[in-house]
Write a protein that binds this DNA or RNA. Structure first.
Lengths: 349, 349
DNA sequence: CCGACTAATGACAGCGCTGTCATATCGAAC
DNA sequence: GTTCGATATGACAGCGCTGTCATTAGTCGG
């Protein structure tokens, strides 16, 4: 019924150890032998038993995906990307929702790594960016890849996939500037997200490069939530001298800002431009549709997973093998501007 | 370092087989012995190795979650619920995104069950409701639980967690009726979803019970998507005799309807009431906030997972044991009406 | 207090694979 | 045609657990 390594060995006329060598891409197998085995594998549609591999070997064929983000679209995109990478390489995925604010992250991660024998960890923000988590994974002797906002890589670039929030925010701000906006409100995301700071930085740089002043009262603290967007926009719009455009740090906040503008009977984009960040599905489901920055989460996750897996697989291999395997994996992403209907020319004075 | 069954056995002064009996809740262990073992387990913080269990035993400690739904919030809610149930019982979860329309579902599922040795399957709509899938899982000699719209249980209630879309839709429609609406447009979801039919049925029954005619031209086919909601609402509102309320089959469509109304400068809910279904997060992020039916997805999924696990675990056990274990798991859910701001009294003629 | 029976416990093999180490095979140099 | 030094291959144990079956301890009636 179920085909095992023994069946393959019998068919190919070799020992099971040779089959093992072939499927693990180990050296010291003659090309002719390798071919015989591969043919048998194909003929029988053999797939190694993960449980047995995990049990027998020193290495593990399981990686874990740890997330701590309320945005379902974000998580699913990431998860699907990781899943693809795992499937392509015959690995298993352990899903682990967590909470970076919890005091027990250390124990939690430690337990996960030591007990579940995972080969690697893929971490997403904000989990991937909190000090306690970084410290823990570094100390844990486990391969990991942190998906982070560029500034959060610190001196750990080799274990990071970086998203350049600052550059993307610069582009978005410049887009507004080109539309003639001189005073642009900025709604910050949560402090704990490094992306919040990156996006603000991009906004600031764009204004500076355009020779425009940075008005602190146009920059409001907030969180990456709809409600926060509503409040921030209200505050901005009810001030004495409201801006002609609002840059919300993510689409959810932008949707909130849209909501607030509507409550105040402000026409978008005629009287006010609003832009978001992330290009999540519902940036296309607002009215009007949001101008935003597209972040290829699926692709980012796929690269992150590919990276952990290459790290994990090269553990016992030669050093040069390691270098060559990690090559070709994109490590930096810059979300790209997507212009839709929520941004328009600045109104005449 | 890692604590195994041997360590526990040594500490408790029994054989490993006895430890195995205790952790698997098998009979024929004297209470005193059981306690000794349990104490040792607790003292050493022993957790059985899943890979070894999967490899050694005839049964598996892995269940799979199969989904085929573009709604990320839905999937994540379900997934988290299943994860909780798995964790509580020491099972592992295999995530398997799929496509019910693909011709290879049969092979895909077969391969999943036979190769990955999963103990059970949790299926969500629309995957859980397609004929090919149902046929396959029935033929596969694997425990499964289908989360379905009530009408889709057919003669398979024992393997279903049912959501009573019809009853919930009845409640929603009645809510509109009580607000004085006489003519209510209905935007259908995709044909392949059984929930589409259930929701329509509830709508029809409510009208009938109120002695109101069912106007076929107020019922529009569509899909569970934003764009479909836009189109449907437009068609309804541009007709000669538009309704005073629109019942969109889910929140995403309702958001689309809101969008369309906005385009046509129709005030919600003053001129038109719009209601959704599902209570997904963004039903609170539209303007105005949506009146909808709350569906406890997390809870539903938890019950579904608990049900497969109880089925799987009782496999070798006595028949009466089986019955008792499945007791206490809720098998039917009716989404409950949540009134927000998108529904209001019917406008005067 | 003894045999007959049942309940409790343990010894051992083996799940499918990998790691270690021994053996066999090959090629090149003499 | 040998010998040596790789390189290629195989035998075997064992990962941590469960299933089977043998063994031991306990219970009851007479």
């Amino acid at each position: 019924m179920k085909v095992t390594i023994n069946d393959v060995a019998a068919m190919a006329g070799v020992s099971i150890k040779t089959v093992s060598r072939v499927i693990n891409n180990e050296p010291s197998v003659r090309p002719a032998t390798r071919k015989k085995v591969m043919d048998a594998v194909a003929a029988l549609n053999y797939q190694p038993n993960l449980a047995a591999r995990n049990l027998a070997g020193t290495r593990s064929y399981t990686i874990a995906f740890i997330y701590d983000n309320p945005n379902a679209y974000y998580v699913i995109d990431m998860q699907n990307g990781i899943l693809e990478a795992c499937k392509a390489r015959g690995y298993e995925l352990l899903i682990h929702p967590s909470n970076s604010k919890s005091a027990s992250v250390h124990d939690e991660l430690k337990n996960l790594v030591e007990h579940s024998k995972v080969a690697g960890l893929v971490l997403t923000p904000p989990f991937s960016e909190t000090a306690a988590v970084i410290e823990t994974v570094k100390s844990l002797n486990v391969d990991y890849v942190r998906i982070v906002s560029a500034a959060a890589a610190h001196e750990d670039e080799e274990n990071c996939i970086q998203v350049d929030d600052s550059a993307a925010a610069y582009d978005i701000t410049q887009h507004l500037l080109q539309l003639g906006h001189k005073r642009i409100g900025f709604l910050c995301g949560g402090e704990e997200h490094v992306s919040t700071h990156g996006r603000l930085d991009g906004y600031r740089r764009a204004l500076q490069d355009a020779g425009l002043p940075i008005e602190d009262n146009l920059i409001l603290k907030g969180e990456y939530s709809f409600d926060s967007g509503v409040e921030g926009a209200k505050a901005l719009l009810q001030s004495d001298n409201p801006p002609s455009a609002i840059f919300a740090s993510n689409d959810e906040m932008a949707a909130g800002a849209l909501f607030a503008a509507r409550l105040m009977h402000i026409e978008i984009p005629q009287q006010l431009s609003i832009v978001g960040f992330e290009d999540s599905p519902f940036s296309r489901q607002t009215w009007p549709k949001l101008t935003t920055a597209h972040q290829p989460n699926n692709e980012i996750a796929k690269c992150a997973a590919a990276l952990v897996l290459s790290k994990a697989r090269s553990k016992g291999a030669t050093e040069n093998g390691k270098a060559s395997k990690e090559a070709g994996i994109q490590r930096e992403f810059t979300p790209s501007l997507v212009v839709r209907d929520s941004s328009g020319p600045a109104p005449k004075q």
